[in-house]
Amino acid sequence: MLALLAAAGWLKPDAAHAQAWNKAAFETHDMAETMKALGGAEPAQSKDIVFFQTPDIAENGAVVPIGIASNIPKTDSIAILIEKNPNMLAATFDIPAGTEPTISTRVKMGQTSNIYALVKADGKYYVASKEVKVTLGGCGG
């Protein structure tokens, strides 16, 4: 029915949403699993991925600001992975041509953890990481 409506021009096919939510990728627990679900090989460490506005210490894990900029040519996508969260993958961003490979958002962290910025550029994967300590307002910082 939906397809019929779409064909008749009643529903605008929405390019961005045509790609279904990648359930498998959002249910992984480590880097190897995540890479498999995303369909990539092991990423190479890269110094061309930088974190900005990402604090060393977060006062509250409910809101941790993360900014990631990739200086790798032909960056197609940027993903945020949080090592110690129940599921590792937090978000993926597809960067079309003309959009700067720079995104900033806020994520939840259950505890102090490494954060990985995973970049796909020209078919290859690259990664950089940074540790963010979460104090949760307690004395355990």
């Binding site: 990402t54 604090p55 977060a58 006062e59 600001p65 910082g141």
Partner: peptide
């Protein structure tokens, strides 16, 4: 009271600034 190093206090200030 807990004692916090100045660096911790500075980092928390940066965290708060990033949220503005």
């Amino acid at each position: 009271p807990c004692a916090f190093a100045q660096s911790t206090v500075d980092e928390i200030a940066k965290y708060r600034a990033a949220l503005q």
